[in-house]
């Protein structure tokens, strides 16, 4: 199961099993989206499977997630998301009303993200062979002219900006799945980020790389970009926004908020001189009100992310190995 956690084991699975069989110039880049040219138009393509227990969680459900996740992957390639497809693997006995709720939630999410679901498929599997419903969405978008973002474009001097408090989705899902009750309910941050991305481009901010941190958390995307761009990243831990209730839950469970999943957050690597402006632009957007710069890109320690702790020490911020396992005490 660790191979599905979005950490180091997931990367190994892809590298050892799928890349040797399927590799080609586009896939080899291993972006969240593929970028291809058709008659001079640059398109971004992506697909994602959604498996989440429970199907409904505070702040969202699998339907909204399946739309937002794919829209966000397209947006982070620098594309304007246009069309989605959706395939549903439904477990026998899944209540009709629940499916209807999920479909309605997908429709809402698509509308607010400005995309249309234009094709779909359904399959039913025997009872006991699925968790209610699995959803796979694919999406296509058009790349903006004149902008070139990619995981290998971060440069020393870049500022790393995050669009809001981190870790909420992972803790919200865990709190329901594991029956944990916290004094304040923790609401998932599931939301599309394409509006935030569009605002950055429209303001002329020099964006080098974009990621929506999902499984593996902010730590995973920081490490991904550091590796792909052969640069180091230094994070000032005091500046990383974490809601008090998420911090408490993580402390209780022995988790690092940097490694906990998000949906609806954006991490942007922008040219140093545009750092402050990027923060202001994001703060003016819905979903970006609490945007903040959390660190910068350096020449030193390429491929590695270093955190400066509140009291002045340093540590490595690493990718989680596999699934996050809460500790004993």
């Amino acid at each position: 199961m660790g191979h599905g956690g979005g950490g180091r084991l997931t990367a190994e699975l892809v590298a050892q099993v799928f890349m040797p069989a399927l590799h080609n110039d586009v896939l080899d880049r291993l972006g969240d989206s593929a970028v291809v040219s058709v008659d001079g138009t640059r398109l971004a393509l992506t697909t994602d499977a959604y498996v989440v227990t429970p199907l409904f969680f505070p702040g969202g459900d699998i339907g909204a997630l399946a739309v937002h996740g794919t829209v966000n992957d397209l947006a982070c390639a620098g594309a304007v998301p246009l069309y989605l497809t959706a395939a549903f693997v439904i477990e026998e006995g899944m209540p009709f009303d629940d499916l209807a709720r999920i479909a309605a939630s997908m429709a809402d999410a698509a509308r607010s993200a400005g995309v249309a679901v234009v094709a779909g498929d359904t399959k039913v599997v025997d009872r006991g062979r699925g968790d209610g419903v699995y959803i796979t969405t694919a999406g296509v978008g058009v790349l903006r002219h004149g902008f070139d973002v990619g995981p290998d474009r971060a440069r020393p001097g870049d500022v790393v900006v995050v669009s809001g408090p981190i870790g909420q989705h992972g803790v919200a899902v865990m709190s329901v799945r594991e029956g944990l009750e916290f004094g304040t309910p923790i609401i998932s941050d599931t939301a599309p980020v394409h509006g935030l991305v569009a605002a950055l481009f429209e303001a002329g901010v020099e964006v080098h790389a974009l990621r929506d941190p999902t499984r593996g958390g902010v730590a995973a995307v920081l490490n991904e970009i550091a590796s792909a761009s052969h640069v180091g990243v230094v994070i000032d831990e005091v500046t990383v926004p974490v809601a008090a209730e998420v911090r408490s839950a993580c402390a209780l469970l022995g988790l690092d908020p940097m490694q906990v999943a998000n949906e609806g957050r954006l991490v942007a690597w922008v040219a140093g001189r545009d750092g402050e402006r990027a923060v202001q632009v994001l703060r003016a957007c819905t979903g970006g009100e609490q945007a903040v710069a959390i660190g910068h890109v350096v020449d030193e320690h390429p491929g590695m992310v270093v955190g400066r702790t509140a009291i002045g020490g340093t540590r490595i911020i690493d990718v989680p190995l596999g699934e996050l396992l809460p500790r004993i005490c």
Binding site: R8, L9, V234, G254, V298, E300, H301, M304, V306, T314, R315, I316, D318, L321, R327, I328
Partner: peptide
């Protein structure tokens, strides 16, 4: 942590895991 030989490399509270996770190499200031 991927291939732990001893339990100290597994748990977050294990000394080996703490070193591996946060202190794998010497890290300077700036």
């Amino acid at each position: 942590p991927r291939t732990p030989l001893g339990a100290t490399m597994v748990s977050d509270e294990g000394t080996c895991a703490a070193y591996f996770t946060h202190r794998r190499v010497a890290v300077g200031g700036d």
